[in-house]
Nucleic acid binder design. Structure first.
Lengths: 185, 185
DNA sequence: TTCGTTTTTTAACATAGGTGAAATTTTGTA
DNA sequence: TACAAAATTTCACCTATGTTAAAAAACGAA
């Protein structure tokens, strides 16, 4: 959940986005990207909620990332290396997004140093958010991670299923249910 | 450990680096960045080994990242936002690195679209490596993570202390020692 | 060499979270 | 409104890793 703050974005970048992206609408529970296919699109969510997920070797459904309004979704390894995707992407709510293809984005980068800079800054922000997630997984209990998610993104809790959230937190659905029941006192 | 492959780097970028960076040598066990100070430098390691670490609320020493030859070290949140650092950085071996300050880097970015692009691609690569670490923490046992590190970066094992490696893997030193002792059969 | 320090290992016990299965609640729809 | 399907909760038991403390091994300076 790394939201873009459009207020602070260079007008030039907005213009490029308007030129190159195309608005698209997805129903709820739509599989936008399947595992094994090459991810050719990057989406900037206007409204709705999407998750990036995968099945681990034991078959557990793990949510890697949630993306809500003003955040970006793609399968980074597949999109940037143009290789078959490990991640799947699906909508959790009806979603409207601006879509750009890999080749369009590359073309846009060539034409605009402002976009190149924006892309770098966005990548750095996502990198820092992932770094924070690594820290959280290593130093916080599942319960602490749950309460923080609840505090930071209460919307997700209302729009996603428990299993999706549990996978995101790195625990099973049963454990999350147990944590929720732990109304201390 | 995201090493830069200099073979594939634009000559223009190399030139900019040569112009702006300054080579610096650090002895073993040197604290390059302390917590609380603003990280004003980014290092590109030429030789040696460095780690990025922090103390969690319980006082455990957690290694966030190792950086060996051709990889980049900084405290990203502190360097990019110019705020007090949460991470500390120290050498684990005598180290030689090319150093660039935050303002020099910003200046260089302004002058070279090639550098801007290189920076974006590097950020994307680090982002993907962190994404993989999140996946590993969520889907692999400590033992699997240890064997993979051993396989991918055998050098680290010989140059870092057990406690540093355990923290990186997300477990205690005692657990890592136990795992090592598990010569099955 | 030898002694003191640092690092690593070992061991007994504690606990967070996993597993599998069943019970319950919620939801959508006929 | 009632029922079937889906989602969530509960429960009993299990396991990986944490905790604390002590022993052993490795290292480094005199």
């Amino acid at each position: 959940m790394v939201a873009i703050d459009w207020e602070t974005v260079d007008p030039e970048v907005k213009k490029v986005f308007d030129t190159y992206t195309k608005e698209k609408t997805f129903p709820k529970d739509a599989l936008i990207l399947d595992a094994g296919s090459i991810c050719n699109h990057l989406l900037i969510i206007k409204s709705g909620l999407v998750r990036n997920f995968y099945f681990d070797p034991k078959g557990n459904d793990i949510t890697h990332w949630f993306s809500g309004p003003n955040s970006v979704v793609t399968s980074p390894p597949s999109f940037f290396k143009q290789e078959p995707s490990f991640f799947r992407i699906e909508t959790l709510q009806p979603t409207v997004a601006n879509v750009i293809t890999h080749s369009q984005l590359e073309e846009a980068f060539k034409k605009s140093i402002e976009l190149e800079r924006f892309g770098r800054q966005l990548a750095i922000n996502i990198m820092m958010a992932l770094g924070q997630k690594v820290i959280d997984l290593q130093t916080k209990t599942a319960e602490e991670r749950y309460h923080e998610l609840l505090f930071q993104y209460p919307d997700i809790l209302q729009q996603a299923k428990l299993g999706h959230i549990a996978g995101y937190l790195g625990i099973t659905q049963q454990s999350l249910s147990r944590i929720r029941g732990n109304k201390k006192v």
